[in-house]
Design a protein around this nucleic acid. Structure first.
Lengths: 109, 109
DNA sequence: TTAATTAATCGTAATATTGCAATATAATTA
DNA sequence: TAATTATATTGCAATATTACGATTAATTAA
């Protein structure tokens, strides 16, 4: 079919998948890093910094925003994008749970 | 176009994006959790546990394996899938780096 | 008000993903 | 060897993603 069967998974699994999908692109990883390092937080700056067209960056920003990972505040003509602290912390926690649940010693293979 | 411009990003960014993409699906998150909890590590068991067709699960397992996150060992007629410890640890480290690089206090907004 | 600047949206082409039925492959067992 | 059991592959339809040119908003400055 081509459409993910979200109904057979838990809300936690679906939410984690959505947020990870938002990060799972090199451009969006780069954008997050630039935002965190405060090297750029404005669409145009990110665009020239990355070498991607402005509409492309705008779309990536939209996806990160839809996932709740960043927030944008209007600064005159431009928009400053920053990490959304709560969502960032929550995702970090969810990932820590997933990764720490693996104890290293395998039960089967 | 529709094809990611991998050449303009670093190897680290591309690799992290690829591994995150492998995890960024509720079925694959569920598969990893079942494997980690050792509730199921065989394609057929995962298939009935998840309620997804066997070829679908097989394909998800293939993607997790391609990303290096799991390994399969032949157990008679079936294949037992487990976490690949080194890759799991590396991904955990990369994510920790990304998440901890955000110090909470924003420089701009 | 008009011009300038910046971000968002629309439309489109190329490609990738998701899911499964049908089938093929591989290993064990009778 | 033939039957059984389990996984992998193929092929396909539906949908999603990626990237960008062209255009449209929105805000500030002249």
């Amino acid at each position: 079919m081509g459409i993910t069967k979200t109904e057979i998974f838990t809300d936690e699994q679906n939410k984690l998948a959505l947020q990870l999908k938002a990060i799972a692109h090199p451009a969006r990883i780069a954008i997050l890093q630039l935002i965190i390092e405060a090297k750029a937080c404005i669409c145009g700056d990110l665009s020239s910094e990355l070498g991607l067209a402005q509409p492309t960056v705008s779309q990536h920003l939209k996806e990160l925003k839809n996932a709740g990972l960043i927030q944008g505040t209007i600064e005159g003509v431009s928009v400053c994008y920053c990490i959304e602290p709560q969502a960032w912390k929550n995702l970090n926690n969810e990932l820590n749970k997933l990764f720490s649940s693996y104890k290293g010693i395998n039960s089967c293979c």
